[in-house]
Design a binder for these strands. Structure first.
Length: 747
RNA sequence: GCCGGGAUGGCGGAACUGGUAGACGCACGGGACUCAAAAUCCCGCGGUAGCAAUACCGUGCCGGUUCGAUUCCGGCUCUCGGCACCA
């Protein structure tokens, strides 16, 4: 993110997007940290304070630049459902939920409510969005978000409403917590008109209505909506059933089937209509006041402005006369000063005169540069495409990607953390579609197959600071005093001996200081052993709790491999190729084992289950060691297979052994060696071991010739000692033979 | 609350389309080598009973389908991750 080259492309594309209306500037009310002087994300707000500085959060109106990702919501969702078949189902579900498409009707309740200045609020229309317009005749109230303009009007007239709104500003903002929150509200004394019946409907302020979704207002249908039902019960509002239901209905308690679809009843002109007819009717009836069918998304546009100095400068110049003027293309890139020292109080660019002051490109008068920089997700949305043609001309703005991109992209296999399931992976997809629409790419989706490695968890230790923030400590700095009877475990910081709070295990993160530096393990055990250990720990998609227990085992394995290979070295050089005609029973058996294990390992590689590839390598070495006195040709073949299978995990030691054995002279560098193929002839067996069950329980094992007739196998099975013991005196009802595997005798 | 995973020995985990549950490793126990230790090698290692052969039980819980279920179906519990009270 410090490379001026990348700045240039980011800035160039940003200006293109401004021209096309995909990027735009908007002023929004945000959570503002007055100490860090930065916009806070919701999760950075704890109890109304910023989690880093611990200072009370301010609500501020801040201008920022936004990317119109919602313009692409439909296509992004469509591709999730139909194109991204190489992605994990969980990530596809997360993206679909994040986009959150709902289809319904947006319409207005007309009113004559004036604000303090005597102006009609919202031009006399209270807009709401609903997916259940068919229940419109069941409306008994309306509810608006605490931030809604009508709420402000009511608050100015009524202290009770003002107090309620102030109350909702405290407490959590995490939406998952809100899901279990009690539904509360206050009547405003303001009334709007039902667009179909003309009835007066009272407006309430409700803590369960979100200003950020739709118009920040809902129609209240307690008869068929669970939240509205709970709200109506609490405040004694009428509840009306207006949909015919298959199961009984009562207003005593909410039942999940109250939300089912059905035909309209008690609904005047809508009686007897089904859902489709009803929403058409409502859209038509409300059209004169702006009502229409609408698709609403949960996805919001991507705010890219950051109040910090690292990242790509947003290429805009603010002029008193000309307004916000884009930096001319030929002046790109706008680069950052390299000598700034952040002092913890806001963006240092704001104090850097050399960066800040410039002249307006339009009128030439003194002007100032935009000091916000771009979100680093901008860079991660496309950098990999530049890698495919890094030397593409950089003097032309539209050459940010080149011919290499047409060849390499879309990416066959992307491996990334599940932590990026939504944001990064959605932004990168969006960015791809924007570049495509600008004629720079020929594909719709950047990543064909996605593997999300699971998260690595570690213990979390923290303390509350005086300011109300949280200070974290690395697990290595904390000692545990184990629990004894009657006393829970205690945790102390080694440096000062005082207790710290234990937060359980959680995702390793920079802020929680619970990450582990692999360098310690590499220093102790070597890079190959560290790599092998991590691969062996679990399948990559699984979440794991970090533990270094067992790394000695992988180091021991590599030492055994080294010793085995070098112990055989002398005999290996003259071993020659395997002559299958001359092999004894033991050599055949070893060869079969190596090739069967190779087959399994190859399959596990393709299904990305690397932990069992490692165990396959361990099995191969075990088999080779057991036969260390056997045929040198077979041993050499086996070891060469093992080295190639192990190579991706342990490139250093396998490469060295390969050379020490002289394989490089004969077969070329290990780097260029092809993946070994199992020899079908090696897998063939003259005799097969089969398992015999009686009533599904294992009772014996038999060896049969590989082409034995079914009758012969059955006879052998029934004569097995263990089988006889369990079938004696009982007539055999049925015999099931699974070729090459087992026989089940049913008695 | 909703969505998506997961649950198998003391631990990490294996079992590819229903067919020998516990591969491979860690830890542990016993032994060999050694003056001793480290390193290395060998043996054992789900539970219960038994000297043993062996028998019974056993993949979160309850039930079903099947000759046979860790695997399929129905209903739960716990847990991890994500989230959206989304109208």
């Amino acid at each position: 993110t410090c490379d001026p080259e990348y700045y240039k492309w980011n800035q160039w594309l940003f200006l293109k997007m401004l021209e096309k209306g995909i990027a735009y500037k908007k002023t929004q009310v945000v959570n503002w940290d007055p100490v860090d002087q930065t916009v806070l994300a919701n999760e950075q707000v704890i109890d109304g304070r910023g989690w880093r500085s611990g200072a009370p959060v301010e609500k501020r109106e801040i201008p920022g630049y936004y990317m119109g990702i919602t313009q692409y919501a439909d296509e992004l969702l469509d591709c999730v459902s139909n194109k991204l078949t190489g992605w994990p189902a969980s990530v596809r579900a997360m993206q679909a939920n994040w986009i959150g498409k709902s289809v319904g009707v947006r319409f207005a309740f007309p009113h004559r409510i004036m604000d303090a200045a005597g102006k009609l609020v919202g031009e006399g229309k209270l807009f709401v969005f609903t997916t259940r317009a068919d229940t419109i005749m069941g409306v008994t109230f309306c509810a608006v978000a605490p931030e809604h303009p009508l709420a402000a009007v009511a608050a100015a007239r009524d202290a009770k409403v003002a107090a309620f709104i102030a109350d909702t500003q405290h407490g959590t903002v995490m939406e998952a917590d809100m899901a279990t929150m009690e539904k509360k509200g206050v009547a405003t004394g303001l009334f709007v008109t039902h667009p179909l019946t003309g009835d007066k409907v009272e407006v309430w302020v409700g803590n369960y209505v979100l200003m950020t979704y739709g118009d920040g207002a809902v129609m209240g249908v307690p008869g068929h909506d669970e939240r509205d039902f709970a709200f109506a019960k609490k405040y004694d509002l009428p509840i009306k059933q207006v949909i015919a239901l298959a199961k009984p209905y009562s207003t005593d308690a909410w039942q999940s089937h109250y939300g089912d679809y059905g035909t309209c009843i008690e609904a005047g002109p809508m009686n007897g209509m089904d859902y489709a007819a009803a929403i058409d009717f409502v859209a038509a009836q409300t059209a004169s006041h702006g009502g229409q069918k609408k698709t609403q998304y949960r996805l919001r546009d991507w705010g890219i402005s950051r109040q910090r100095y690292w990242g790509t400068p947003i290429p805009i110049i603010h002029c008193k006369d000309c307004g916000d003027v884009p930096v001319p293309y030929e002046d790109l890139p706008v680069v950052l000063p390299q000598d700034l020292i952040p002092d913890g109080s806001g963006n240092p660019l704001k104090k850097d005169a050399a960066f800040l002051n410039c002249s307006c490109p339009t009128c030439g008068k003194p002007a100032t540069r935009e000091t916000d920089t771009m979100d680093t997700f901008v860079d991660s949305s496309w950098y990999y495409m530049r890698y495919t043609s890094p030397n593409n001309a950089s003097d032309y703005h539209d050459k940010m990607v080149g011919a290499g991109n047409d060849y390499w992209m879309p990416m066959d296999q992307y491996i990334g953390g599940i932590t990026h399931a939504v944001l990064h992976l959605l932004y990168a997809r969006f960015w791809t579609k924007v570049m495509r629409d600008l004629g720079m790419l020929k594909f719709d989706e950047p990543f064909t197959n996605l593997l999300c490695q699971g998260m690595v968890l570690n213990h979390i230790y923290s303390r509350k600071t005086d300011k109300g923030g949280i200070e974290y400590f690395p697990p290595a700095d904390v000692e545990t005093i184990p629990a004894t009877t009657g006393k829970p475990a205690m945790y102390r910081l080694k440096s000062d001996g005082c207790t710290v709070d234990y937060g359980g295990v959680g995702t390793m993160s920079k802020s929680k200081l619970n990450g582990v530096d692999p360098q310690d393990m590499i220093d102790h055990y070597g890079a190959d052993a560290a790599r092998l250990f991590v691969m062996f720990a679990s399948p990559p998609e699984q979440t794991i709790e970090w533990s270094s227990a067992g790394v000695e085992g992988t180091q021991r394995y590599l030492r055994r491999l080294w010793n085995f290979a070098h112990g055989l070295q002398a005999g290996m050089h003259n071993a020659g190729a395997v002559n299958t005609a001359l092999l004894d029973v033991a050599a055949k058996k070893l060869r079969r084992e190596i090739h069967a294990t190779l087959k399994q390992a190859s399959y596990d590689y393709t299904r990305l289950q690397y932990n069992t590839v490692v165990s396959a390598c361990m099995k191969m070495l075990n088999a080779l060691e057991e036969n260390r006195a056997g045929s040198p040709a077979v041993l050499r073949e086996g070891l060469m297979i093992l080295l190639r299978v192990l190579y991706p995990a342990c490139p250093h030691i396998t490469w060295q052994i390969w050379n020490d054995l002289g394989c490089h002279a004969e077969f070329g560098d290990l780097l260029d060696a092809p993946w070994p193929e199992p020899d079908p002839a090696a897998l063939e067996q003259d005799e097969i071991e089969m398992v015999v069950q009686v009533n599904g329980k294992l009772r014996g094992q038999i060896r049969v010739p590989k082409d034995a007739a079914k009758e012969a196998i059955e006879k052998l099975a029934l004569n097995d000692e263990g089988v006889k013991r369990h079938t004696e005196g009982k007539p055999v009802k049925k015999l099931i033979v699974v070729p090459g595997k087992l026989i089940n005798v049913v008695v």
